[in-house]
Design a protein around this nucleic acid. Structure first.
Lengths: 185, 185
DNA sequence: ACCTGAACACCGTTCAAGT
DNA sequence: ACCTGAACACCGTTCAAGT
C-alpha cells in the first residue's frame, strides 16, 4: 500500500495547474471556473481550496508561470528578434497572454506574480543597455515594450486582420519600421 | 395619464445603457451582470432581453459607443497629440478601454461594433497620409497604433508604475522618443 | 409590445463532517 | 492533512403567464 500512500492525489496542486492550463487555452480566463478545474482533476469542487486561496490565486499562479516563460523566451534573443519573440509568444498562447495582461489580476496581492511580471521589461532593458548608441535605454525599452505589446494585443483582437495575412510577418515589418533613436537631445 | 403612457420606462434601452456604463467603470467588464443592471434600472432581471439579445450584446453596445468616442477624440487632434489623446482616453476610462480591447467581444457578431472599432486606425491612417515624408503610411499608422495601444495597456496594468510617476507625461516622453521613419528603402 | 415570477443549470466560497 | 457533501448567495438564459 506504500505506493499509493498519497491521498487520492498526493500531488493535487500540479494536477490542478495542468488542468487549469488546458482549460485556460480552451475557454479563456473569464470562463475558467474552479469547479470545472476540480472536475477535470477528478476531485470535489472544493478540494482546490487546500492548495489555492481561491480562483484568483490559481489564475495568478498560471500568469506567473506565463511571465517566467515569456521572460525566458526574450532572454534567449536580442534586437529585433526579441520583439518578434514577444509577439510570437502572444500568438502561440493567446489566452495565457490575455490572462497575464488582462488587467484583472491584482499583482500586489501575489508577490511571485509581481516578481515574474517584471522579467519582460528587465530583459528588454538589458538589451537596450548593451547598445551604447541608445541615449536613454529606459525610455527606449519602454517604447519597445509598448510597441510589441500593442502589436500583440491588436493582432490577437483581429484589428489588423485586413493588413496582416501573416501576423508574424506583419509584426516583423512593423517592428523593423520603427526607430528608438532617443539620443540625448 | 398621457404623460406617463410609457410602460414603466418607455425608454428602457437608454436607461439600461446608462446603468451599464456606470456599473462598468465601477466593477469592470467581467463583473458587469445583466441582473445588476436590471436592478439598477428598476426592472425585473429579465426585462433587458427585450432590448438586448443577451449580456454580450449589451457589452457590445457599450464598446461600440466607446470606439466612437475614441475615434472622435483622435480626429480632433494631429501628430503627437493624437497619441497622447489615445493614452488619455484609456487612462480616463480604464474599464471601458478594457472592454473595448479585452478580446472577449466577438466583433463579427456585432456589425455596429466592428464598424466603430475601425475608426481609431482610420483616424491614425489619415494623419500619416497627410505627411508626405512617410513612405508607407499604413505601416506607420499600424506602428503608431501599436505603440500607443501598448503604452495605454501597460500603464493601466501598472507595469510602468516605477518609471511613470505621471502616466500622461511618461506617455508623451515615450511617444516623442520614437520615429516612424519607414521611408521606402 | 412590454414586463413579470418561476425555473434550470451553472458559479465562488464557506462550513461541518468524515478518514 | 486532505477530502467530502450540503448550503448560500449569486449568475445568464428560457419560458409561460400577465396587462
Amino acid at each position: 500500500m506504500l505506493a499509493m500512500a498519497t491521498y487520492h492525489h498526493g500531488d493535487l496542486r500540479p494536477a490542478l495547474v495542468r488542468a487549469a492550463q488546458k482549460l485556460l487555452e480552451k475557454a479563456g480566463p473569464e470562463a475558467l471556473s474552479l469547479r470545472e478545474v476540480a472536475r477535470r482533476a477528478g476531485v470535489s469542487h472544493n478540494a482546490p481550496y487546500r492548495h489555492f486561496s481561491g480562483r484568483e490565486a490559481l489564475l495568478a499562479a498560471l500568469a506567473a508561470e506565463g511571465f517566467r516563460r515569456l521572460g525566458e523566451a526574450l532572454a534567449a534573443t536580442t534586437g529585433r528578434a526579441m520583439g518578434e519573440a514577444y509577439v510570437r509568444f502572444a500568438l502561440e498562447h493567446p489566452q495565457l497572454f490575455r490572462l497575464m495582461f488582462g488587467g484583472r489580476l491584482r499583482f500586489a496581492r501575489h508577490r511571485p506574480l509581481a516578481e515574474a511580471a517584471a522579467q519582460p521589461y528587465e530583459a528588454l532593458l538589458g538589451a537596450f543597455r548593451a547598445q551604447p548608441a541608445i541615449g536613454d535605454p529606459e525610455k527606449a525599452a519602454a517604447a519597445a515594450w509598448a510597441l510589441v505589446h500593442g502589436l500583440a494585443h491588436l493582432l490577437l483582437d483581429g484589428h489588423f486582420a485586413r493588413q496582416a495575412a501573416d501576423p508574424a510577418a506583419f509584426a516583423g515589418d512593423v517592428i523593423g519600421a520603427v526607430r528608438f533613436a532617443s539620443r540625448p537631445a
